[in-house]
Amino acid sequence: MSKIKIAIVDDHQLFRDGLAGLLLKHEYFELLASLPDGESLLQFLEERESPDIILLDLTMPGLGGFEVLKRLKKHYKKIRSIVISMHEDGNYIVKCAKAGAYGYLLKNADEDELLTAIHKVYRGERYYNDDISARMFQNLSLQQSIPEKLTKREIEVLHHLAEGLTTKEMAEKMFISTRTIETHRANMLKKLDVKNTAELIKRATQLHLLS
């Protein structure tokens, strides 16, 4: 079995060394490179051989982690990267996943987790931190596409209007203030170029916005 070729990209020497030390305890890892930033990684990839896995930090001077992920997705599709970050915010996971990362680990991840993640990603699976992976999907579900003209919330208000709910009832249902409901409604009137709620419903029906 061939060794898993790994590159570490992090602007902190100490961290890189620590990580390298940990990995090198296991003989099936081969550390190809330990690099301080994105530029030197790209340069390395261009000049030297490609690693199987890149352990990538997000916040780095110069070319940051996200930028590196985009470049990899475009030019080095075979290289799988695992983001190792201090941020536990799910937004980062979502963004990384979108940018093409196969895994997301917190920097203080235990050795076992680190190894699991590397193995899984090497096999082609994805690995995200347990805590945060659940959130990721929740967040993703919030990122639904929004109709061209009306926002998702406006459509909601439209439906409630059609159901005959009062502004107050809508506000309670939608966790927004009556003022905001009024703003939504006013915005819809503007967008659909109608003068009142009755016309709004009629126009919305014509446009199949209520179906």
């Binding site: 620590g18 940990l22 920097k107 235990d110």
Partner: peptide, 12 residues
């Protein structure tokens, strides 16, 4: 980074 490095060192 210092702390995370330290953790890695300890693990090694």
């Amino acid at each position: 980074p210092l702390l995370t490095s330290l953790k890695l060192s300890i693990q090694s």
